[in-house]
Design a protein around this nucleic acid. Structure first.
Lengths: 187, 187
DNA sequence: GTCTATATAAAGATAGAC
DNA sequence: GTCTATCTTTATATAGAC
């Protein structure tokens, strides 16, 4: 792998584990076994430029992964249950959830960087689009699908946060069981 | 007001707006028009000790406020709708949600400080307890009330995050409309 | 394209006068 | 209990050799 891709790969992991401000440039360098010269050659605008590249990387990974799951299973319900199962397994294995969320980045950057916030906004929109399309295929109207997709995203992201806070996978498991109520028409 | 209370009050506001790492000690001092001497006299262990004091402060404010609302209205549904209305109004007025959340603090501190994480965990448990009690009064079993309360917390926290990300109050409004589906028995 | 060495700024914290 | 002045560490970023 070329140096640039390596930096992005390793930095992505670190940012998801510790947040943007929680990871120093030096830590990234050490993890990559490279030095400042290399990093600033590939990312002249420094750490924030690297973060944007990482967000794009996360974006692709999440989108691809979600699409695969949502294509494999017949209904939104099945697909979502499987997705949450993966999140739970991830959490129980590693104690964090690295693959599917960026809410910590949103939270810490919301007041700090417009660029980063926009990147996160796009990403959520994209994920919700996948949910929404599947819901339309399930028979919901476009508007209802939009609303339900939003509620799914909110519940799952909130659930991830509760798992991290309470250090147990119970919240996501309960949310999974409550899905049938979530995936229903409402006013 | 005495200096210590003043520091806590102002720091609480800043932490909620910009997160823990996003606010420097110097910024707090400036906002309080005091100097380091005063701050480190009241909080010998520095910034983290101050944060814990602020979390307790938020805790009381949120708990009191939530209890008032949940006592005033007959059902969990009505109370929750009113609560979300307040969140939406807060967001539309100030562009942020300062009074009712601490998820950004959780997210950024999750990997960094055990103490802070525990304080946040207690707080969520307390809020969910209020929801849960009301749900039992509504007629749900204790276990079901626990599960629904958790889903409420997850949706609302997730909804707040989506509002911040997309810079619109739409997510919370949609969640409010979807509440009837959330507040139902499930397996 | 990657290295070493250095610059520069900001953070949190302390010491001691008043 | 609050001030000023200072310390220490750490952060991001740059310059220039190879």
């Amino acid at each position: 792998m070329d140096t640039k891709s390596l930096i992005i790969k390793i930095a992505t992991n670190l940012f998801q584990q510790k947040g943007y401000i929680g990871v120093g440039v030096n830590e990234i360098l050490k993890a990559c076994t490279i030095t400042k010269g290399a990093l600033y050659h590939h990312f002249p605008n420094g750490k924030e430029e690297l973060l944007i590249a990482c967000l794009k990387n996360i974006d692709e990974a999440i989108t691809t992964d979600t699409e695969v799951i949502f294509n494999r299973y017949q209904t939104t319900m099945e697909a979502t249950k499987k997705m949450i199962e993966k999140l739970v397994a991830n959490f129980e294995r590693e104690g964090t959830i690295t693959g599917y969320t960026f809410s910590s980045i949103v939270s810490e950057m919301a007041a700090l960087s417009e660029t980063v916030l926009n990147a996160c906004s796009d990403l959520y929109t994209k994920i919700q689009g996948i949910y929404s399309n599947k819901l339309v295929a399930d028979g919901f109207s476009k508007e209802m699908a939009h609303s339900i997709a939003l509620m799914m995203t909110a519940s799952i992201e909130g659930g991830i946060m509760l798992c991290l806070t309470h250090k147990t996978s119970e919240p996501l498991k309960i949310i999974s069981r409550g899905l049938p109520n979530l995936l229903k028409e409402f006013s």
